[in-house]
Design a protein around this nucleic acid. Structure first.
Lengths: 342, 342
DNA sequence: TTGTACGCGTTATCAT
DNA sequence: ATGATAACGCGTACAA
């Protein structure tokens, strides 16, 4: 015999069949969307199932169909409210189309391989990643799963990987225009980590539009996408240089840290002395103490686009269907931190 | 024949065995932690597996062992950074002990039943819930899964449910002591939704200690656990009554909203005019604009306790092992919002 | 409409 | 140490 627990066993369709006096197939058909059973049989089966507390087991169906209806969702750093929101929306949207979320939190890239092995073992049909940091190594590891991968705001590429991203470059340009319109003369740019491709694009769009407007290249502040990093970067800058009069930050967390440091360490007023623009439009951006102008990435639309790609990849036969990129426009959300004549 | 995809098929152990010229059992043993194979055989198997890109499939093992090594994690509202952090820690901790996270986001209680049916179908070994709101209905639905459930900071009970919670009542008392020590005369309490049992406990502890210290009953403000709710509640209060000089909030989100409203709508200063205490110690509590005194629930310890309960329940034979409650002490984190002589 | 039989990919047992 | 085999619970083709 196999070494299974001889004690209790979950109720199976065989048990129900026995009690209902029908075949196991009849039970299966009763619980299948398009199974044809007579009303009488269905009645008996449902009664027996209820009596035993039977719950259809979806595991065997995975073996038969080769589809688990599970999607691996790989996240890193839910400390950022933006990613928490993204995960929230994904969980809802995926379940609505009958897909389960197998969550993988990846702190460091060492953990990634392990985590992906486990995903592979559970035969997830596809994977979605919202990794803030996208290295080639991560792309390779993900592609090795040989399942469709959708990257969220991260520029990994491979035949298996498609990408959905906000229009980072255009947003950077819009930020430059906004600050220029407000009369900014000494712009600064607070970048995220070098590996954050989205952040890089934002900075590039910002710099090129500033140049087009005849403004100097922005002072570079290096942050790490966290509140503390934003604060530290500003303090470092203030200790050696005069403050900028306009600051674009790679994300809202850093922007909030920057604002607090500008006020406290620099004794500066927002927006009178410094105009600040962030990115992500996290809930805290609208909190009155920050009242931060930001870019809404329109998560709902990004999630919808991701599901489209996912559905497309899962509809056809297995095989690499990646390489596509969908770019979603961002929406500028003007607030007090760039108010005219503050 | 069964109606499976006749096109491509994931590589199975049989394929590897064929290529390696060994039996399928040898392949299985090679990939099993305690399978005994000769070095020569292992070599051949690993080579063949690498050549074919074989990944062991864990699905059949679920059928044989009756254990999926998946845990359903039920969350509601990742908008609250506290719950985002909790989920983050769970994902890491569960994977460390070899358990997968099947994530279920439950917005309304209608969705709960559907979601739980799906969890049941995937035969999760156990479930963890961090539902902010715990109704008897939710408890019943969860218990119907007939698997061990651990409730996080929510007072659901049943033979299948055990609970891990922070010491809400004591924290409420400590908040009262702190405010009393600061000379507060007109205390107020901002509660969460009525269904939030944890919040109720905090308020009860607060009120009873205030009474013991000879202070009046706190003015009740009704919030909804969100920033906006906190703000609205304060605005409503200020429009009809003089402001309190000490405010304890059911969570930090409401406290941040309250602080902004006190400052902006009331023109009040924190802590000079009003001392404020929150709960959860979310990252935003330490942001300089709020500098909010709060209670750290020690998530790491709560998660550890949850995993202990989980491991205990999964170690023995299946059966109801619930009914236990673990209470974790909280840690007061004093900050500027209750500073002496602000 | 209903029942029988088979197979999904793996692990555990048994015999070699 | 290794190979053959049964079994897990379900969906489906086929026969009735």
């Amino acid at each position: 015999m196999t070494g299974r627990r001889p004690t209790i066993r979950p109720v199976s369709s065989v048990d129900v069949a026995k009690l209902a006096g029908v075949s196991q197939s009849a039970v299966s058909r009763t619980f299948s969307p398009d199974g044809s059973v007579s009303a009488a049989t269905r009645e008996k089966v449902l009664a027996a199932a209820a009596a035993l507390g039977y719950r259809p087991n979806r595991i065997p169906a995975i073996m038969l169909s080769g589809r688990s209806h599970m999607v691996g969702v790989v996240v890193g750093g839910l400390d950022n409210p933006f990613y928490a929101t993204v995960l929230d929306r994904f969980a809802v949207a995926l379940r609505e189309i009958g897909l389960q979320v197998l969550l993988v939190q990846v702190a460091d890239s060492v953990a990634l391989d392990d985590a992906l092995d486990q995903l592979a073992g559970y035969r997830v049909d596809a994977a979605v990643t919202a990794l803030a940091v996208g290295t080639q190594r991560a792309a390779d590891a993900l592609s090795a799963l040989r399942i469709p991968i959708i990257c969220f705001n991260s520029r990994l590429t491979s035949p298996w990987i498609s990408t959905v991203q906000s229009d980072n470059r255009t947003a950077g340009r819009d930020a430059a225009d906004l600050l220029a319109d407000r009369g900014v003369r000494r712009p600064a740019w607070m970048a995220g980590p070098r590996a954050n491709a989205a952040s890089q694009e934002r900075g590039r769009g910002f710099a090129e539009r500033l140049a087009a407007r005849g403004l100097p290249s922005p002072t570079l502040l290096r942050g790490d996408d966290t509140y503390q990093g934003g604060q530290d970067a500003v303090r470092r800058l203030l200790s050696t240089s005069p403050p900028p009069d306009g600051l674009f930050c790679g994300n809202d967390l850093m922007a909030c840290g920057a604002i607090d440091a500008l006020r406290q360490a620099g004794g500066l007023s927002i927006p009178r002395d410094v105009r600040v623009v962030g990115y992500d439009d996290i809930p805290q951006a609208s909190w009155q103490s920050y009242d931060l102008t930001s870019f809404d990435q329109q998560v709902e639309r990004m999630v919808a686009a991701t599901l489209d790609l996912l559905a497309g990849a899962l509809a056809g036969p297995p095989g690499p269907t990646g390489g596509r990129t969908v770019r979603i426009p961002v929406r500028l959300v003007p607030r007090g931190s760039t108010r005219q004549g503050g």
